[in-house]
Amino acid sequence: MAYTASAAQQYRQNSVLTTTPADLTLRLYQGLVKFLRTALTGIEQGKLEDVNTNLIKSQDILRELLCTLNMGVPIAKDMAAMYEYMLERSMEANMKKDKEIIKEILGFAEDFYDTWMKVTKAVKV
């Protein structure tokens, strides 16, 4: 069993190391959507610890997206402002356990994911 866990860990590590920056960004968006949906489900089920855990994971992803922006690209300032807004709203949603705020952030996250998916497909063609 230890061998299997170690092999799986090695596979994940190699997968991250060999993935393009565009694909890594797509994975971040995918994780953001997943954690926000899970937080929303946690609110609906009254599992406040799950809400907290998943909103913190969402915030970590938003911080990573902020850190990886290439500020030399004109749209980066707008993206940074949007990520910062989403981060602030996520913290507010966590304090208030507010599902409407989570839905708002989730809508933005899904839009980013869908757009980035189209961009990466267009570039690979």
Rank of each mutant, 00 (worst) to 15 (best):
V119F: 08
W116E: 06
V16F: 12
Q9T: 11
N94S: 10
A7N: 07
K47M: 06
I102C: 05
V16M: 12
I56Y: 10
E88Y: 13
R89H: 01
D50N: 12
V16W: 04
K47N: 13
T41G: 05
E49M: 12
A76L: 07
N52M: 08
K118C: 01
L26Q: 10
V119L: 13
D114F: 09
F112N: 03
L36Q: 13
L62G: 01
R63A: 11
C67E: 13
A8L: 14
K103L: 14
N70W: 03
Q13M: 13
E49P: 02
M117P: 00
E64F: 07
K96W: 01
I102Y: 02
T19K: 12
Y83W: 07
F112W: 12
A80P: 02
L28T: 03
M91G: 15
M82R: 09
N54A: 06
T20Q: 01
R63D: 10
I56R: 14
A122Q: 15
Q9D: 11
N52F: 10
T20S: 15
W116H: 15
A80F: 05
R37N: 14
T25M: 09
M1D: 00
S90A: 10
I56F: 11
Y11E: 03
L66I: 14
F112G: 03
K57N: 09
L62K: 01
D60H: 10
G31S: 07
S90E: 01
F108A: 06
A7H: 04
T25Q: 09
N70G: 04
M95H: 07
A39T: 04
Y11M: 14
